[in-house]
């Protein structure tokens, strides 16, 4: 199975003077077990796109297929509960997905709702809170009386505790401290590798695209502008600039070094790729050439 978008259009507030285009004729395939990064300028339709994956939004026309689930304009909400278990979504603003009285209840909601008994759900919640690095002393507090990064962690924990098969992450590391960002991305990567979760990541961090994604989709004004391996996307620098995108840190660094006289066979996207190619152009540590 896989995720497919088939001629999907979406309009916000249709048939009103405020009608605004969200998506325009989107056609996409995200293979089962893939890790896809969705990138593109502010307002390009990334959040609109991924909110179709768990039925939060339904296509105005066209069809979205998520494994066994089919979504069209007429799909009724009654059919969505199983989809909500199948697809876990971390919203762009964590405040918009928190709701319960305490942090631990908020995280336990998914497991409870999907059939686990109270004790098990509680234990799963405590475990998930630990995994995302929440301090113990926040568990019994209101999820709204936390710092921004702590709320983000609660939202992620709630999604993990529901053990979804598809993980949709809308800028999941915005608001996390730098170490938290690294840990969280590595954890998503691990879930992807070990449990073959399909991961869809919306991000403005080109380093995350380079480090984790096997496919990148570039959105612009509600349309898919390009889809392909990160290497393919970044290999066209002028196009990347024109889309108001950026390059991974290692790539920008390599561009600067190129100006000085270093040469690279293949454009480095990650720090490791850069180090590999640089090492060949530097003396060895023991002072001998290579």
């Amino acid at each position: 199975m896989a995720i497919t978008f088939d001629h999907v259009n979406f309009t916000y507030q249709p048939n009103s003077p405020f009608a605004a285009t969200g998506l325009k004729d989107v056609n996409l395939t995200l293979p089962d077990g893939s890790f896809t990064a969705i990138i593109g300028h502010t307002g390009s339709g990334k959040s609109t796109l991924v909110q179709h994956l768990n039925g939060l939004l339904k296509p105005t026309s066209g069809q979205v297929q998520v494994d066994d689930f089919t979504l069209t304009s007429t799909t009724s909400n009654r059919h969505l509960k199983d989809l909500h278990q199948h697809v876990g979504m971390v919203f762009q603003f964590p405040e918009n997905q928190l709701f319960d009285q305490t942090v631990v209840k908020d995280i336990a909601f998914g497991p409870l709702n999907f059939g686990f008994d109270e004790n098990t759900a509680h234990d799963m919640a405590v475990q998930a809170a630990k995994t995302v690095g929440l301090p113990d002393n926040v568990l019994e507090r209101s999820p709204f009386e936390l710092s921004g990064g702590q709320m983000r962690r609660v939202a992620i924990a709630g999604v993990l505790a529901s053990q979804p098969r598809v993980l949709v992450l809308d800028e999941p590391t915005a608001g996390l401290d730098p170490l938290g960002r690294e840990h969280m991305m590595q954890m998503f990567e691990q879930l992807h590798e070990e449990q073959q979760l399909t991961v869809v990541l919306v991000t403005h961090q080109m380093d995350d695209v380079a480090d984790y994604a096997d496919q990148a989709v570039v959105m612009g004004h509600g349309e898919v502008l390009k889809a392909g391996a990160p290497q393919t996307i970044f290999n066209d620098p002028q196009w990347v600039y024109d889309q108001q995108l950026d390059f991974p840190t290692a790539t920008k660094f390599a561009f600067q070094l190129q100006q000085k006289g270093f040469s690279f066979n293949q454009l480095p996207l990650t720090e490791q790729q850069l180090a590999d190619q640089l090492a060949d152009q530097l003396p060895a540590m023991d002072g001998k050439g290579r």
Binding site: A250, Q256, L257, F262, E271, A279, P283, D286
Partner: peptide, 30 residues
């Protein structure tokens, strides 16, 4: 980057350098 270069057995700076300083350092070593 400096740490990865060390792991490769390559010369590398032993203290913090800003990105631009690092570029210059690498070029001088090259």
């Amino acid at each position: 980057l400096a740490r990865s270069l060390a792991q490769q057995g390559s010369v590398h700076p032993d203290h913090y350098l800003s990105d631009t300083e690092m570029e210059d350092w690498l070029w001088q070593s090259h």
